[in-house]
Design a protein around this nucleic acid. Structure first.
Lengths: 200, 200
DNA sequence: GGATAAATTCACTACTTGTTGAAAAGGAGT
DNA sequence: ACTCCTTTTCAACAAGTAGTGAATTTATCC
């Protein structure tokens, strides 16, 4: 054993880029952006920290690559825009659940933990939701459109929090139909139902 | 001008301890425990970083002093236990709102941001909610008590998220009665209402 | 097989963090 | 006025951070 670790190009097949990505998803999910260190990620990927710079240009680039949202904003916008009013909630909820359930590495948790510190992602998300749903609701002519959007957002983000971040049972493993029956009904009321406010 | 800053004991009245506490609440709330740095807090308090050690024994001590929860768990437990079933949601919601609205420095945001990384606080909170509400619901003999508790938690934490962390209008400034009318109704349905699940 | 390019390691820089200890400054008590 | 003692500042440390660049090893192409 002359060297602690073999230098130079490794035999093909050991895809360090993929290993880094996988480790990054795990660590970012657990620790958030600031909490995660390049060294920790590299060590979990059994790879040199410098590889992060080599492959992704730095910590920020690795983060961007690791947390690529499995969401196509345009698709959601279309869903909201083209659904009949009374089905918007169910369709969006089903999309929400299938997207984040599939995102194997707990992408939502990562998003939450990073949004708390990064703030920029949260702002984008916020504005996206506000405009997408806001315009549609105004189009439909319901009362208190802005309040409805934030109510909708509160229940949806709360679901994400409990299901994906806290992983609290039985909600964490509840099947889609159960969620649609319970939370979907709430969401639909927030969008187009009777809010229960006296005036008007 | 012989010295950049005057050394030594300051004239009485400039309570640096209080200044530090106030700055600490603000910065911890905005950045969370890890994100906040002693230097930032000290600088906002216009005070030397070393004062944190002098007065609070370190960053951890300052945190403990700054974040004292304005919640009395026993009080909530009593509310849940002694309320007639159909009023639990409204009472808990009103308590929740008044407690966290009063907590001037955004205590909920600090709790969330720290809970995301610290995890121990989250676990405690989770178990507290699960047992308190779980036992009461089982006592009442409703179906799916555990699911109901998590649904309840999802809407309540979502409200906290949007109102206190993201501060999204108009929900962030909505008055108590509006919240009771909209979200309270949801919460009550989750606790004792019809969940909409086929079976039973 | 020899040249080239890619992949990896390592030593290093520059910076930030929390914390420490000594020195300085001024009030308080006698 | 003289001594304490508290408060404050400053400089520095040890540990940890991300990122850089040269050196080195290996695959791949001609």
């Amino acid at each position: 054993m002359t060297h602690p670790k073999r230098r130079g190009r490794r035999p093909a097949g050991e895809d360090t880029k993929a290993a880094l990505l996988s480790a990054a998803r795990a660590v970012f999910t657990e620790q958030g952006f600031d909490g995660a260190t390049v060294r920790t990620i590299a060590s979990r990927a059994e790879v040199d920290p410098a590889m992060v710079n080599h492959w992704f240009g730095g910590k920020q680039g690795l983060f961007a690559a690791a947390i690529q949202l499995p969401v196509d904003p345009e698709q959601i916008r279309m869903t909201v825009h083209n659904s009949p009013p009374e089905e918007i909630a169910e369709r969006v909820l089903r999309t929400f659940i299938s997207v984040w359930d599939d995102s194997s590495g707990g992408g939502f948790a990562a998003l939450m933990r990073s949004a708390a510190t990064q703030e920029s992602a949260a702002k984008l998300l916020r504005e996206f939701i506000a405009t997408t749903f806001g315009t549609r609701l105004r189009e439909l002519g319901v009362d208190h459109p802005d309040l409805r959007v934030t109510l909708f957002g509160s229940q949806l983000s709360g679901l994400g929090l409990v299901r994906y971040v806290l992983r609290q049972e039985p909600l964490a493993s509840a099947d889609v139909d159960t969620l649609v029956a319970t939370i979907g009904r709430t969401l639909q009321r927030y969008l187009t139902g009777d809010l229960g406010l006296g005036g008007e």
